[in-house]
């Protein structure tokens, strides 16, 4: 899982003044030729810091994202769903592990990243600051939030930084299963008993606005990311990703007889662009800055886990602890 869009900050040419012009030109030529950058290659400082920022946010989104769904593992109805949801959420934590490792190749340790997360210094996907009240909410997340994540991640997997691309390729393969699982769950609810159908419709009503937010503010309001696009750090614009998501999933949602709570949602047949109502971008800004329904709770869980696990991590650092060779 991953929310793009909001991951970038203003980046200006003047920040490159101290870089060696020849090295910078060669670096940009490599990217232009479609080559991938490895961790040992020369790179501008700005490229490094922006990549750390992006990959770190992605990793945080995976572990924080495992919380709203994770609370439904113990309540999943029946063996089939319980086993599948456990495996899915485990995958998400595994993605965090892969992504922290990818970010570490750029010089920031996992510990430092997690410290910045629990201190509120680094961000994660906004959508996980909303509560999953019912089983249907968890099904919405598994299907549609993961679907949105795939749109973002497939774009990013074509980026220029090799370790991140390698992690993303594996992540996308796993996400494809999550999508199938989520879709299967939603189909059962949307075509089930009146109670199940109502539960699913209410979840769509609750989650639609955060889902539109998921891809970030419209391009016209977005920050200056020209250099990041040129360096293939940011691969697709927010509007492009959102439009692709609407194109792929809105018809599927309607097909199940579910209503989307936006009377203006409609594709322009000539331009291929979906029109949609203003999803209240001020709410998006409020939530991303820490004032959403679950921001405090999510970070508190992470902080408690870190504090309770501290003695274990300290014990592992003991000089008397023996190293156990991994099995594989």
């Amino acid at each position: 899982m991953y929310g793009g869009g909001n991951s970038f900050e203003d980046v200006y040419d003047k920040e490159l003044k101290h870089e060696d012009p020849e090295q910078l030109a060669e670096f940009e030529a490599r990217i232009e030729r479609g080559e991938k950058i490895e961790s040992t290659d020369w790179m501008p400082e700005l490229y490094r810091t922006q990549l750390i920022r992006m990959i770190e946010q992605h990793a945080h989104s995976e572990i924080i994202g495992s919380l709203p769904e994770g609370t439904w593992i113990t309540r999943a109805p029946g063996f089939k769903r319980k086993l599948a949801l456990m495996a899915k959420v485990q995958d998400e934590v595994g993605h965090a592990q892969l992504l922290y490792a990818a970010a570490e190749t750029l010089g920031k340790s996992r510990e430092d990243m997690i410290t910045d997360l629990i201190n509120g210094k680094s961000k994660y996907s906004n959508i996980f600051n909303y509560p999953a009240f019912t089983w249907a909410d968890s099904c919405f997340i598994s299907w549609l939030v993961d679907a949105g994540a795939i749109v973002n991640q497939i774009a990013n997997s074509k980026g220029s930084y090799a370790p991140y691309c390698r992690a993303l390729e594996r992540i996308c393969a796993e996400e494809a299963f999550h999508l199938k699982y989520g879709h299967h769950c939603v189909i059962h609810l949307a075509t089930g008993s009146p109670v199940q159908r109502q539960m699913m419709q209410e979840a769509v009503n609750r989650w639609w606005k955060p889902m539109v937010h998921f891809f970030g503010p419209p391009d016209k309001d977005s920050v200056h990311t020209r250099i990041l696009m040129k360096w293939k750090v940011k691969m697709a614009s927010n509007d492009e990703c959102r439009n692709q998501f609407f194109d792929m999933y809105v018809p599927k949602i309607w097909e199940l007889g579910l209503e989307i709570p936006d009377p203006n949602l409609k594709k322009d047949p000539e331009t291929g662009i979906w029109n949609y109502s203003d999803p209240d971008w001020s709410e998006f800004k409020r939530v991303i800055n820490g004032d959403g329904p679950c921001n405090k709770e999510r970070l508190a869980v992470r902080r408690i886990a870190e504090e309770r696990g501290l003695w274990v991590r300290q014990a592992l650092k003991s000089p008397k602890a023996t190293y156990t060779t991994p099995l594989a």
């Binding site: 572990i63 495992s66 919380l67 994770g70 593992i73 456990m86 495996a87 959420v89 485990q90 934590v93 595994g94 965090a96 592990q97 922290y100 869980v301 992470r302 408690i304 886990a305 309770r308 696990g309 501290l310 003695w311 274990v312 991590r313």
Partner: peptide
């Protein structure tokens, strides 16, 4: 899930 002392233990206990 989400509470392990290190990520690897969230994953191991889930397995």
């Amino acid at each position: 899930n989400g509470l392990g002392p290190i990520l690897e233990e969230d994953i191991a206990f889930s397995s």
